[in-house]
């Protein structure tokens, strides 16, 4: 009887302590990971549908089976401007290998975007996020931010900041189906 009581007490206290420790750990962990992207590496990329500069509607899920190089950018952003020619160069090489670039422009006017596209001779589709819908969905902070999505629709890697041509090549190889 006494032994049982003692065991009961020990279990009670051990379980209580364990329970409280796990709450504390959970809180700490979720607080640390809170400020990161809503969409993180390993997640499925949330689907969206946007119009291109030419007015065609494009939906992300239609690219299943292909690697998607999802780039968020703006014309005023210098690092975005820097990596655009590299993206264009590599796009030419990787297009036939099943890698698509979707470059989401954040809330700018057609005129400005068109000027920019003409200036850099961009051939990949430019998506116009006019209401900031997709930018909000992916919780984009600083730009450029690029999501590398594999053929299964999973986010393989998230890159913030400008890329070199080497980087672009490396990343496109990563998501090549």
């Amino acid at each position: 009887m006494n032994k049982i009581n003692r065991k009961k007490r020990r279990y009670f206290r051990a379980i209580l302590l364990l329970f409280m420790c796990s709450i504390v750990l959970y809180t700490l962990f979720s607080n640390i990971s809170k400020d990161k992207y809503v969409v993180s590496e390993g997640d499925y990329a949330p689907n969206f549908s946007l119009e291109t500069l030419q007015g065609e509607r494009v939906e992300l899920k239609d690219y299943r089976g292909e690697g998607v190089f999802l780039n968020f950018w703006g014309t005023w952003c210098k690092p975005c401007e820097r990596e655009m020619p590299y993206m264009e160069e590599e796009y030419k090489n990787f297009k036939d290998q099943g890698v698509e670039i979707l470059a989401v422009n954040i809330e700018e006017s057609d005129l400005i975007v068109q000027n920019f596209v003409d200036r850099f001779n961009l051939s990949f589709p430019i998506l116009m996020d006019r209401d900031g819908e997709v930018t909000g969905k992916y919780k984009i902070g600083p730009i450029p931010t690029t999501f590398l999505i594999d053929k299964n629709g999973k986010v393989v890697k998230i890159i913030t900041g400008s890329m070199t041509q080497q980087d672009v090549k490396k990343y496109m190889n990563l998501i090549k189906p």
Partner: peptide, 19 residues
């Protein structure tokens, strides 16, 4: 106020309170 050690302090107060 969102550092891990500050949260830990508050959490320890909570545990202390319960026990």
């Amino acid at each position: 106020y969102s550092s891990w050690w500050y949260l830990l302090l508050v959490a320890l107060i909570g545990i202390s309170l319960v026990i």
